[in-house]
Amino acid sequence: MVYCQNSQSQTKAVILVFKRKELLYDAENCSFVEGDIMKTDNEHARHQVFDIAQKGNIDRVTRVLNTAHAECVEMLYPYTKEEMLDGQEALDDVLRQPETYEIRLTLPKTFSLTTLRMLKELIHEYLVCRVLADWMSITNPASEAKWEKKFAMLRNKIQTALMSRTRKIRRKLKPF
């Protein structure tokens, strides 16, 4: 996490950084376990589950990672919105493999650091599970539903974390 705080402002800028290498490492580990516990005698099918980050397959994984990152940015919309500049936006579908996936947030000064840390962990897991759900839909359809359920649960937790209190509450000492 990178913090930038303006003392005059009521907000602070935060960048959540997710390293592609770390995301792929976690996806490969889970994919290896999935392949290892597959109930099949077909070694070719098992080998396809293992090869999630191999040449040729990595392009599909990259597209899913890019999409999942965009989904996370959109989930955090109140804190990530960016204005479009007139005539400045040109988007294409060229495959990009960024070294890092960044989410730039503008948060109230009162936003909890513990919530931010939890968001970082939840988003990392979301990105990994999203990749695995897609990969399993291709190589091991029996396992796809498990990963879809996990990333749906993580999406719900991310959205719930954003709705948590961000301001201090003052309670009167006397109830009457």
Results as ranks from 00 to 15, higher is better:
Cys129Tyr: 11
Lys19Ile: 04
Ala53Leu: 02
Leu65Asp: 02
Thr114Lys: 13
Leu16Lys: 00
Leu119Pro: 05
Met118Val: 14
Ser9Asp: 13
Glu89Val: 15
Met38His: 01
Thr67Gln: 14
Ile169Met: 14
Ile58Thr: 04
Leu16Glu: 03
Arg63Tyr: 12
Ser164Pro: 01
Asp59Thr: 04
Ile52Asp: 00
Arg155Cys: 04
Gln48Cys: 12
Lys168Met: 12
Ala145Gly: 05
Gly56His: 07
Leu173Thr: 08
Phe151Glu: 05
Glu28Asn: 07
Lys146Thr: 07
Ile123Lys: 00
Phe176Ile: 08
Leu16His: 04
Arg104Thr: 04
Arg104Gly: 06
Asn140Tyr: 09
Arg20Asn: 15
Asp59Glu: 15
Val64Phe: 02
Thr166Trp: 13
Asn42Cys: 07
Tyr79Met: 02
Val2Gly: 04
Cys72Lys: 00
Met84Asn: 14
Thr80Arg: 01
Leu116Asp: 03
Ser9Pro: 03
Met118Lys: 15
Asp93Val: 08
Lys39Val: 07
Thr110Met: 08
His69Gln: 09
Asp26Ala: 08
Gln48Phe: 04
Arg167Cys: 10
Asp41Glu: 13
Ser9Arg: 04
Asn6Ser: 12
Pro78Ser: 06
Val2Phe: 12
Gln48Trp: 06
Ile103Phe: 05
Thr114Asp: 15
Gln5Ile: 14
Val61Ala: 10
Asn156Phe: 15
Thr67Ile: 04
Leu23Ser: 00
Leu162Tyr: 07
Gly87Lys: 02
Ala142Val: 07
Tyr25Trp: 11
Leu154Tyr: 03
Pro78Gly: 10
Lys146Asp: 06
Ser137Phe: 06
Ile37Met: 08
Glu125Cys: 04
Leu127Gln: 00
Val61Ser: 03
Arg170Ile: 11
Cys4Leu: 15
Leu105Asn: 06
Ala142Cys: 06
Thr100Gln: 14
Glu148Gln: 14
Tyr77Leu: 11
Asp86Arg: 10
Ala45Pro: 00
His44Ser: 10
Arg117Glu: 15
Leu113Ile: 12
Ile103Lys: 01
Glu74Arg: 14
Ala152Gln: 10
Lys172Val: 01
Pro141Gln: 07
Val17Asn: 10
Lys146Trp: 03
Val94Thr: 09
Glu121Phe: 06
Asn42Phe: 05
Phe32Leu: 10
Gln159Tyr: 08
Leu173Trp: 11
Leu76Tyr: 05
Ile158Pro: 06
Tyr126Ile: 00
Glu74Ala: 09
Gln54Tyr: 09
Glu82Asp: 09
Val64Met: 11
Trp147Pro: 00
Gln10Glu: 13
Thr115Tyr: 13
Leu122Ile: 05
Ile52Val: 13
Ser9Cys: 11
Lys55Trp: 08
Arg171Gln: 10
Glu83Ala: 13
Leu154Asn: 01
Val49Trp: 00
Arg20Cys: 06
Met84Lys: 14
Val2Ser: 11
Ser112Ala: 13
Thr80Ile: 07
Leu122Ala: 01
Leu162Ile: 07
Ala27Ile: 03
Glu28Arg: 09
Glu144Pro: 00
Val49Tyr: 00
Asp92Thr: 08
Lys174Asn: 12
Ile169Ser: 11
Pro108Ala: 03
Lys55Thr: 10
Gly56Ser: 06
Arg117Gln: 15
Glu121His: 06
Cys72His: 03
Tyr25Pro: 01
Ala45Asn: 10
Glu74Thr: 12
Val64Cys: 08
Ala27His: 03
Phe50Ser: 01
Lys12Gly: 01
Ile58Trp: 02
Leu107Tyr: 01
Asn156Gln: 13
Leu119His: 06
Ala27Trp: 02
Ser137Leu: 07
Ile123His: 05
Asn42Ile: 03
Arg130Ala: 03
Pro175Ala: 15
Ala90Leu: 14
